[in-house]
Nucleic acid binder design. Structure first.
Lengths: 185, 185, 185, 185
DNA sequence: CAATAAGCGAGACGGTACGTCCAGTCTTGGC
DNA sequence: GCCAAGACTGGACGTACCGTCTCGCTTATTG
């Protein structure tokens, strides 16, 4: 029998979400235990297992309920301004203490070293090629080569990581074409 | 006393790295146990703990030694071609079975849902603004708005996640300016 | 928090005691592992550690519950007969398979050699002195000198080993006086 | 190949025995580890394993070499005096610090409780019977009933424990007959 | 307005893996 | 070729949590 949501104790539900949030802040994702959440929330373990199958969904709900919410950005009329405001809101959310402390560790439990190890060689090659292009005049000299490399790799890596859409050759070509249009003299 | 690296058994070291690689492929990061690695490598657990403090560094070494290595990209003379080839090598590495199966889970243990949850609102707002700009003629109509949104968010998210450099307002502005140059008619 | 005895599973408790008893019979005290007891009892290790601090107390309880129980000896009226029956019950208990196999090793884990080493010199000296006394007529010739030596050393050694009471010079004197009364012609 | 005793390092041998003795005094038998002996003796573990199969024999040798040695007892001419002196030497040896601290734990690793548990019922019954006999005049009133019970049980228990000789009914009878001779009025 | 069924706190249970310790073997370099 | 040193395989230790399973105890419909 599935549990009867009507009879659910809201007091317990909130205590659990708050406890989970606090503990994941303090300990990180991997050291967070259901047992500790139950103890801190003053709740039986079963009450957690009754409503959530595991840590992941529990924290998902905790973030939905207690996570950072950036303000809506009202259009100013100027495209550049709007996009900059939009991204700055995103940056602000990412930087919010509760988020930064918790979420990077949560999202990125394993050593960043590993990703660095995997990404850096590509990045270095890209930067070298862009510098050469700058010297030959194909790329404007006022472009920050490092940021440009990130402009190329960022979307690829993000799409791979988050599976927002399939990672195809066409996507790669589109990214390069767009970025190059920005970089050309 | 620190262990004496000179006396280290290379046979055991390699067996451990291979076993770790195979098991993380088969089970994913979180279900990988040191005990299983030791058993499969035919090695005492202590021999693992003697040389690595935990799962993370062990897998790091396994990837360094056994991970994917993309080919060097030889310059063709054409910038767009070179950058596309470069990114395709990156994509190929990311797609390599050993890597894809293992590394996403490894890098991204926690539910992708969470990140999606955090990123999607920004993304939706960005796409709406870009569509509006397209209608008003500020952005060319042949631009894929979805890819363009990724071009904006990808670098920001990647820089936050990997801490490749500080995530400043200036960086955001530079990204927007560069991307807009590409998108404008 | 101490465990809650009211909730204790009697099924598990008994299974553990039986398993402990069987294994100590088969393997002896030192080769008995908590892990093996848990496995044989079909019980988690924690369930043993929750209720017993270590092997010793666990086996103590196992013996209390499952150990040998000699019959009560009903008085026959004749003192010698009664004492002999009493001691024979003790001997029977000591000889019971479950007991003899297990308990000597359990009580006397260390090499008997050691005790022999320590006791034999005294014993030899005692026997020599008693033989001399027999030759000089101080001790009856029908006395088994070896048994007599044991009569002297047994109580001393037992009192030392079991700490049944302080091991004083007075005790020694009392023992010698009593035994001599028996040995004299 | 058996080790070549001629080449044996006496310095190492003695250092090992001394270290073993010191450690068993400090820690007791069960907490004594070969590793600790080797470390304290400044000796490789292999040097211990080369010459002794295990803890037991090692400690046996340590006691042979470093254990207590009571003085020889010179006959005084009086039997009672001689036997008392003899037993007092035994008691002195048993009481020697090195011995008492170490050896009881060593000989009697397991909980004394257990033996008490097994022996006490017999002992109580014996004492009761002896008291009754005292009341009925079969046993002299100046006899310490507790010591008398020990006189009966001590030899039996010791013979069982040390297997100095088979534990037969005849032996029991002989003990009872001897002791009764001492106890009768 | 009981009664009765659900959620609840608590916590014991069978398990899995942890990270440590030591046994006993093997290897290396020095004497 | 013994020795000190110490890395090795193996296996038990005692602990921490997992997810499941009762226990009594609220608590809130529902017959």
């Amino acid at each position: 029998m599935p549990p009867d949501a009507a009879r659910r104790s809201d007091r317990s539900r909130r205590a659990i979400l708050v406890a989970a949030m606090e503990l994941v802040e303090a300990l990180g994702y991997s050291k967070l235990t259901i047992e500790a959440v139950a103890a801190r929330a003053g709740v039986g373990k079963q009450t957690i297992y009754r409503w959530w199958p595991s840590k992941g969904p529990l924290l998902f709900d905790a973030f939905v309920e207690l996570g950072p919410v950036g303000p809506d950005v009202l259009p100013s009329g100027d495209l550049a301004t709007d996009l900059k405001r939009e991204l700055r809101v995103a940056v602000a959310e990412l930087a919010e203490r509760r988020f930064d402390q918790v979420c990077r560790v949560l999202v990125h439990e394993a050593r960043t070293d590993l990703v660095t190890l995997l990404l850096m060689p590509r990045r270095v090659e890209l930067e070298e090629r862009l510098l050469a292009a700058q010297r030959s005049g194909e790329v404007r000299v006022d472009v920050d080569v490092s940021a440009a490399a990130e402009l190329l790799l960022g979307p690829v890596y993000q799409r791979w990581l988050l599976r927002t859409a399939p990672l195809t050759g066409d996507f790669v070509d589109a990214v390069v074409d767009l970025v190059l249009r920005a970089l050309r003299g």
